[in-house]
Design a protein around this nucleic acid. Structure first.
Length: 874
DNA sequence: GTAGCTGGTGGGTTTA
DNA sequence: TAAACCCACCAGCTAC
């Protein structure tokens, strides 16, 4: 049979050869079951159909024909003949083929590990063609063992740390949320049962669910497809606990406190385009949804503990019903807020207590918890588990205190003022007193629902961009959502390298830092009619213009500057090289480097997308999708500079980053000079921007002044764009701008009436609301009204209110991040002291969380304000 | 990724 | 002798 669809997730399991199927736990990315006998890896591609008759239905592709492998190359010795090299490689090949070692599993059982086979191969290493070995292994878990042995045999090892499923995607050129075509036969019997869920055996109360077809693949390949409006089912969940009254501690403990509510939110019905092939689960919902609209409504469901159950501390039924719901709903994506760090961990403990399996996987397997690792990771087979808190932490810089309600409000999902808000103490009260007071219990239910709905809303706002990034980078969404930008770039580069026959270099860090951007000291005070100019995509443009790439960098000594009369000594001649200013790093002008080829391609793709966007209405779904695509390309392109300077990067090359910033400094200084030559007074400049005004007396009327400044700015920009390989764009026009005299700190009023603030306390998360409110008002009065006296008066009233104790405590709460364990702080800072006191009274703040505190006059130290998650700090 | 600001700690030194 | 001052450093956070 043939099947087409799009890829959602990938993992693998190991199965015993010979016997039908195998026992053991379901494999996951990076994991696998074990046991005696011969085993082999089976890659599982979790897909959704795109064919018209069964759109949105699930199927899983089983591929048993992919072998784990890695590369090994001899260390290159200077000037050795071709024959000598080949002879050595043949010798090494024999050596590697003979490798046999004992591998001890965590249970202590021994396992004999051999190399499966070895092939000769040709690959490029930083542009240089090299001959080496491609070493295949029986199982993915053998790679780390054999890698060490191959190293011992005197070879340099490459690409031995690419996870097996990722290796599969790269080699097959498959991408998540993109097309897959498979030829094979439908799996039957035990094989099918093991690999897809819901054949009806596990869910007692529910009807038999629709079947997930499993296909034993004989051929799997990429299939181009339209990627708009993919039918993806998201399930958001959240759980609430109540702590025993009088137990002192404010934190619920999974050892004793049961889960009182699990709330879920989801959209019911098919995604846009109809619900063909779906007989049930459509309920009596309205089907008439407009094209392009959201259409289907958000639904919620609560799993609530009963009184008697609470008395026994027995939340088994609640957990079971939740799991059954997951299996019935079959979500593609499961989201929660801090779900990896909290909800799943709690569920794990509670499930263990009752001896029930947390089988939320699409194959009925249990939720897998990553061991070790700095951050707790949670994996669910066949589904994409995403912790939105991690996403918000990484991507929503402007939300300072990343509580669920704050993020939801910021994204326009749900206003805080329009939902039920409860503190942990109130949750307790609503629970315990709710048995008498029905209303309070209702409030708790509304609260639980609001949390799940907010999580769903956040997912719907944030995931589309993540999905585009996932498709582009080639990493499954759940993993990608946890990765930092550097690792995302690296994943993308790894796939690109494969396409270009390049090897991914091994990591070789360094501690050395390098000089960054140039900042011109600002001219203190108030300025009027200032134009802001900036270089668009300065670093990427520089990298492309000067072919900056790890493979075009010429080591000092290899480049010879041709002096008059002197012969050529190095491998490269000066006129064939770009030399960076100040640092004098050299880069070959040709051929185009690895980075340049990729970046040029990305920029071309982005340009094409942007022009395609113009053909669509801004509110259309086509436009929105294209917009997300161009955004993700931009994010990636802009990350290349940072990536080359990230010392944990595989393609790390300090000189690349160093040269990039050196050219940046060179050009911004040149631009300042040119602007001043044209009659501008440059009042400030930072890295890639210039703030300039015309000296007084050029024109008299205010309106003319703006026109004059802009006209001049256009002239300067044109001249600069002609002379330099960069575009200088007019970014903004400020009617007034105020500099405190310090770098990176100013406030401005644009000609559109908006106030822009940079660096000042308003922008900082470690100042209390009151301070920020006051500063905002002062800035308004100074910039808009130009009335410092009024500002002064206003501040005085605020100070008086403060002295009179009229200011509410919440407005004085300061939040600061606890960046490490309390014990490892050298200095006694207020928020650390506050965190310690909170701990003493039973509220444990995790590393990385924000500690709320208030500084009181004459107090011994910090006193707590009501936090949302944590109760007051003692 | 580097540049830069600010507040605070903690120790040593100066000052009234 | 204690308050005032100075300074290097730690820590957190932001601009680009």
């Amino acid at each position: 049979m043939k099947k087409e669809g799009f890829l959602l997730d990938i993992d693998y399991r190991t199965e015993k050869v010979g016997s039908e199927g195998s026992g053991g736990s379901g494999g996951s990315r990076g994991g696998g079951s074990r046991g005696g006998g011969k085993e082999k890896p089976v890659v599982r591609l979790w897909c959704k159909s795109t064919s018209e008759s069964e759109e949105g239905s699930d199927f899983v592709v089983l591929d048993k024909d992919f072998e784990p492998y890695f590369y090994a190359f001899p260390f290159s010795y200077a000037s050795r003949s071709e024959e000598e090299g080949e002879a050595e490689l043949r010798e090494k090949k024999r050596l590697v083929e003979g490798i046999c070692v004992e591998r001890r599993s965590s249970e202590g059982a021994g396992e004999e590990v051999r190399v499966k086979r070895v092939e000769f191969c040709r690959k490029k290493l930083l542009g240089l063609e090299r001959q080496g070995l491609k070493i295949f292994t029986e199982l993915p878990r053998h790679v780390p063992v054999l890698r060490e042995e191959v190293r011992r045999a005197g070879l340099a090892v490459f690409e031995a740390d690419i996870l097996f499923p990722i290796r599969y995607l790269i080699d097959k050129q498959l991408k998540p949320f993109d097309g897959v075509k498979v030829v094979g036969e439908e799996a039957e019997g035990e094989e099918a049962v093991l690999n897809y869920a819901n054949t009806g055996t596990r869910t007692r109360t529910r009807k038999r669910k629709r079947k997930r077809t499993a296909i034993l693949a004989s051929k799997v390949c990429y299939k181009k497809m339209a990627v708009g409006n993919l039918p993806i089912k998201i399930l958001a969940f959240d759980s609430e606990m109540a702590t025993q009254p009088g137990s002192g501690s404010g934190m619920p403990s999974p050892k004793k406190d049961p889960i009182i509510i699990i709330s879920v939110a989801y959209r019911e019905g098919r995604a846009r385009g109809g619900g063909a092939g779906e007989g049930e689960a459509r309920g009596g919902e309205r089907g008439g949804e407009g094209k392009g609209g959201e259409g289907n409504e958000v639904k919620t469901k609560l799993f609530v503990l009963e009184e008697g159950e609470y008395g026994r501390g027995d939340d088994e039924r609640v957990i079971r019903e939740f799991l059954e719901f997951v299996q019935e709903f079959q979500p593609d994506v499961i989201v929660g807020y801090n779900s990896d760090g909290f909800d799943w961990q709690y569920l794990k403990e509670r499930a263990k207590l009752h001896g029930i399996r947390l089988n939320a996987g699409a194959d009925g397997s249990t939720v897998q918890f990553e061991r070790g690792g700095a951050l707790p990771g949670v994996n669910i087979a066949g589904r994409l588990n995403v912790d939105l808190f991690k996403l918000a932490k990484r991507d929503l810089d402007s939300v300072k205190v990343k509580k669920l309600e704050n993020v939801a409000e910021f994204l326009g999902v749900q206003r805080k003022s329009e939902r039920v808000n409860l503190t942990p103490r109130e949750i307790n009260e609503c629970w315990f007193e709710g048995s008498r007071e029905r209303k309070r219990r209702e409030r708790l239910y509304e609260y639980a629902k609001a949390d799940a709905v907010s999580a769903l809303g956040i997912a719907e706002k944030m995931l589309p961009l993540q999905i585009e990034l996932s498709r582009m980078v080639g990493y499954p969404l759940d993993e990608l959502a946890k990765m930092g930008r550097g690792r995302q770039v690296e994943a993308f580069l790894t796939a690109e390298a494969f396409k270009k026959g390049e090897l991914v270099p091994p990591k070789r860090g360094s501690e050395k830092t390098f000089e960054g951007g140039f900042v011109l000291p600002p001219e203190k005070g108030l300025h009027e009619n200032v134009v802001a100019l900036d270089f668009s995509s300065m670093y990427p443009t520089i990298m492309i213009s000067f072919n900056i790439s790890p493979d075009t960098f010429v080591e000092p000594g290899r480049a010879e500057v041709v002096r008059e009369g002197a012969g050529v000594v190095g491998d490269f001649v000066a006129q064939d090289l770009h030399f960076a200013p100040e640092v004098r790093h050299a880069f070959r002008k040709s051929p185009d480097g690895f980075f340049k080829r990729i970046m040029t391609d990305l920029i071309a793709r982005r340009r094409a997308i942007k022009s395609a966007m113009r053909k669509h209405d801004k509110n259309s779904s086509e436009y929105q999708l294209l917009n997300l695509q161009q955004q993700s390309i931009k994010i990636l392109t802009n990350s290349f500079y940072g990536y080359t300077g990230w010392n944990a990067a595989k393609f790390y090359k300090r000189e690349c980053a160093e040269a990039t910033t050196a050219w940046g400094r060179h050009f911004i200084k040149r631009a300042v000079k040119m602007a001043e030559e044209e009659g501008f007074k440059v009042v400030y400049s930072d890295t890639d921007s210039i703030f300039a005004k015309l000296p007084p007396g050029v024109t008299e009327v205010a309106e003319d002044r703006k026109a004059a400044v802009l006209k001049k700015a256009r002239e300067v920009s044109e001249r600069i764009s002609e002379e330099l390989p960069l575009e200088l764009e007019i970014q903004d026009f400020f009617k007034t701008i105020f500099f405190t005299g310090k770098k990176k700190r100013y406030a401005a009023l644009t000609d559109k009436g908006e106030i822009v603030v940079r660096g000042l306390e308003v922008r900082r998360g470690d100042w209390c609301e009151l301070a920020k409110e006051v500063q905002t008002k002062v800035i308004e009065l100074v910039l808009r009204e130009k009335d410092p006296a009024a500002a002064f008066k206003f501040v005085k009233t605020v100070v008086q209110d403060l002295k009179d104790g009229k200011t509410p405590l919440e407005k004085l709460t300061i939040y600061k991040t606890l960046t490490r364990r309390i014990s490892s702080y050298e200095t006694k800072q207020a928020h650390v002291v506050a965190a310690q006191r909170a701990l003493d009274s039973g509220v444990a703040y995790e590393v990385g969380s924000k500690i709320p505190y208030v500084i009181l006059k004459g107090a011994e130290g910090a006193r707590g304000a009501g936090g949302a998650r944590g109760t007051g700090v003692a």
